[in-house]
């Protein structure tokens, strides 16, 4: 344990996010690197739902952590660090996702589908089924992207990232019951948008 980590204020667990934030604030970049490794995937999964291309999502993640490091002194300990990161992602991702979607529309659907298939598809399965599944996912992504922001966040956090309700409530700044209600309404809105497609199947 370094000299700096010994100076962590009393009441903070040495390996907690708050302790690492405290160390990073005091110039320990390795502590910030640990925070990055710990929460990179959380931010990436959320960013990927807004900008469904790996490079765009990674750009968002990078920008989020740069902003987080530059504004560490503004971070208040009463909020969870992950909640703070997700809020930064939500703010940054909206504009970035808009740009990404605009760019994506310029590309042909085939090339975009092939890229996704090559990226995530299982080569052992039937290519036609793979393609159909990717098309369904693409439609689902579009339906999620068309939701209002608070509905989109609710669906992404609960049903894609499988976050706990208390963390969702922390993000929205509401009670757990309020978070459950938001998730329920968001699911209903998503189902209404997908109903014609799903009933056709």
């Amino acid at each position: 344990m370094s000299e700096r980590s010994k100076a962590i204020p009393a009441g903070l667990a040495p390996d907690s996010d708050e302790a690492l934030v405290w160390l990073a604030r005091n110039g320990d970049f390795s502590a910030f690197e640990r925070l990055f490794d710990r929460h990179r995937d959380l931010v990436y999964r959320y960013a990927y739902q807004m900008a469904p291309r790996r490079d765009d999502a990674e750009d968002i993640v990078q920008e989020v952590f740069v902003k987080a490091y530059q504004n560490l002194k503004r971070y208040r300990d009463e909020a969870k660090f992950t909640t703070w990161l997700l809020r930064i992602t939500a703010n940054l991702g909206t504009d970035k996702a808009r740009m990404s979607n605009r760019r994506q529309k310029l590309e042909t659907r085939e090339s975009a589908g092939a890229l996704t298939w090559m990226t995530v598809g299982n080569m052992g399965e039937d290519p036609i089924k793979n393609l159909e599944r990717e098309q369904t996912r693409e439609l689902l992504r579009e339906a999620i992207a068309s939701l209002p922001e608070h509905h989109r966040n609710a669906v992404v956090f609960r049903d894609i990232q499988e976050m706990e309700y208390d963390a969702i409530a922390d993000f929205f700044g509401c009670s757990v019951g309020g978070a459950k209600l938001r998730v329920l309404r968001a699911r209903r809105a998503l189902r209404d948008r997908l109903a014609p497609l799903m009933e056709g199947e």
Binding site: F36, A57, E162
Partner: peptide
């Protein structure tokens, strides 16, 4: 329908691995 929706939503969580490393963030 809702079962399909749930499975498809869960499948959206299967995303390519993030290849961003801390060195790139440090450079940024």
């Amino acid at each position: 329908v809702l079962g399909n929706l749930k499975s498809e939503l869960k499948a959206l969580g299967d995303i390519p691995e993030c290849q961003l490393n801390s060195a790139r963030v440090k450079d940024a």
